[in-house]
């Protein structure tokens, strides 16, 4: 359990990450706010509570690693890396600009703190497998975390990787699927249903946990259970809300890949600022 002070800090950080997501996509007039907002809480928890990594140890062979398999949600990753001090927060406004290091999708060569380039769906989970395997080969006890989209599960490579991770007993790998139920073309069940997600991963030999994506204590419990599970990888299915935290973006697939205009941006920031005040009052 997180104590109240820590919980408040995490909530405030996640709110700031949400503001970075909005600022970056608004400044770029493009990008993927919906799915970025749905993973803002889990990614904040990973970098501020769970993972053994920091700007100072960003190249250490023993650090924990993170792969954003759903790479289009880079604004969430960049937001949390900026909050964590990997690069200046002001740079978020250069997202997707010509000449900026903050590429539209994560670029490990250019962006401090990014462990793997990603963006082409299905490939990140395989790369996370490779890292987990390298850890086993070298007998290092780092852990590897990766986040997939629920629509991403439609990629065949995800299931090649799912088979691989359990075959090689990669219990140092924890994967998440951001189960917000929406992809670009609409409801995942209408476009191409990947359901049931839990039964599929269980059948592929994974330990599966279902969890509320926006409850820090539940997330931490699930991550700790994954750490204690030996002999198989863990998939944490995040029951999430796409666009979480911005009323008009929530559960609306049109915010998958479009940025807020000036007016929408102002409203979204005002909503999150109000939430920040509520968090502070509740603390």
């Amino acid at each position: 359990m997180l104590d109240n002070k820590k919980l408040t800090e995490l909530k405030l950080t996640a709110a700031n990450v949400r503001k970075h997501i909005l600022t970056g996509t608004h400044a770029a007039a493009s990008g993927h706010p919906g799915g970025s907002l749905s993973i803002a809480d889990v990614i904040t928890l990973l970098y501020f509570e769970v993972m053994n990594t920091s700007p100072e140890t960003a190249k250490s062979p023993d650090r924990d690693r993170f792969v954003l398999s759903k790479g289009h949600c880079a604004p969430a990753l960049y937001g949390v890396l900026a909050e964590r001090g990997y690069f200046p927060k002001e740079d978020i406004a250069t997202l997707r600009r010509t000449g900026s290091y903050l590429q539209g999708h994560p670029d490990m060569k250019a962006i401090p703190g990014v462990d793997m380039s990603s963006g082409s769906l299905g490939q990140g989970i395989s790369a996370a497998n490779g890292m987990a395997l390298a850890g086993k080969i070298d007998k290092r006890d780092f852990r590897v975390y990766t986040i997939l989209g629920d629509g991403e599960l439609e990629e065949g490579q995800v299931w090649e990787a799912a088979m691989y991770a359990s075959h090689y007993k990669l219990d140092n790998l924890t994967a998440f699927v951001d189960f917000n139920g929406l992809q670009i073309d609409g409801d995942i069940e209408k476009v191409m249903s990947p359901l049931p997600i839990d039964k599929k991963f269980e059948a592929f030999g994974w330990n599966v946990i279902v969890c509320d994506a926006h409850d820090f204590n539940a997330l931490l419990d699930a991550i700790n259970q994954a750490k204690e599970t030996k002999g198989k990888p863990t998939m944490i299915i995040l029951k999430s809300v796409k666009g979480k935290g911005v009323s008009f973006m929530e559960n609306n697939p049109s915010w998958h890949g479009s940025a807020p205009n000036d007016e929408q941006y102002a409203q979204a920031i005002a909503e999150i600022d109000a939430e920040i005040e509520r968090i502070k009052e509740g603390a």
Partner: peptide, 13 residues
């Protein structure tokens, strides 16, 4: 496909 991306992950270490 999985082999190539896995190779990338191993090489990143």
């Amino acid at each position: 496909g999985n082999m190539m991306s896995t190779a990338a992950g191993i090489a990143s270490c």
